[in-house]
């Protein structure tokens, strides 16, 4: 499966796909999207890369071992549950802070958002672990 068309289009498609996955992740709290879909999108971007070039190229492009990403995501999700404990709420209770932006206005930052980021990385990591493992099989 080494078609020039696929390779070229992948090269152009790849960055927007990644950006779009992050966009999906961040808007998820208010609009359709979220960590699951975001992670899946990012994962499919790399899967596409692997199909167009080769799994080892995709692995190089990804730079990290996907298992580390999975573990990291899980850790982020777990840690996001900790802050509410300090204000004597249950583990994983949503906690929100209003961060003033330099340009004026405020940004809502909450632990659920951080949790969603964790989900994003877990899904991405899991997907790539399996795709790379299967793809490298001789």
């Amino acid at each position: 499966m080494t078609s020039i068309i696929l390779r070229t289009s992948t090269r152009y498609m790849f960055p927007p796909l990644i950006v779009f996955s992050v966009y999906l992740l961040l808007r998820g709290h208010h609009f359709p999207g979220g960590g699951f879909v975001g992670g899946l999108f990012a994962g499919s971007a790399f899967a596409l890369y692997a199909l167009a070039y080769s799994v080892s190229d995709a692995r190089k492009a990804f730079r990290q071992d996907p298992r580390d990403i999975t573990a990291g995501g899980l850790a982020i999700a777990l840690l996001s549950g900790i802050p509410p404990l300090f204000s004597s709420h249950a583990f994983l209770t949503g906690t929100w802070w209003e961060v003033p932006l330099p340009m004026g206005g405020v940004l809502d930052v909450g632990t659920p958002l951080i949790f969603d980021v964790g989900v994003y990385f877990v899904v991405l990591g899991v997907l790539l672990t399996v795709v790379f493992a299967l793809g490298e099989e001789e």
Binding site: H29, H30, G34, W96, P112, D116
Partner: peptide
């Protein structure tokens, strides 16, 4: 309470 407009997402992450 959960500062989210997408209820499905709020259920999942909050």
């Amino acid at each position: 309470e959960a500062h989210g407009r997408n209820v499905v997402n709020v259920i999942l992450v909050d």
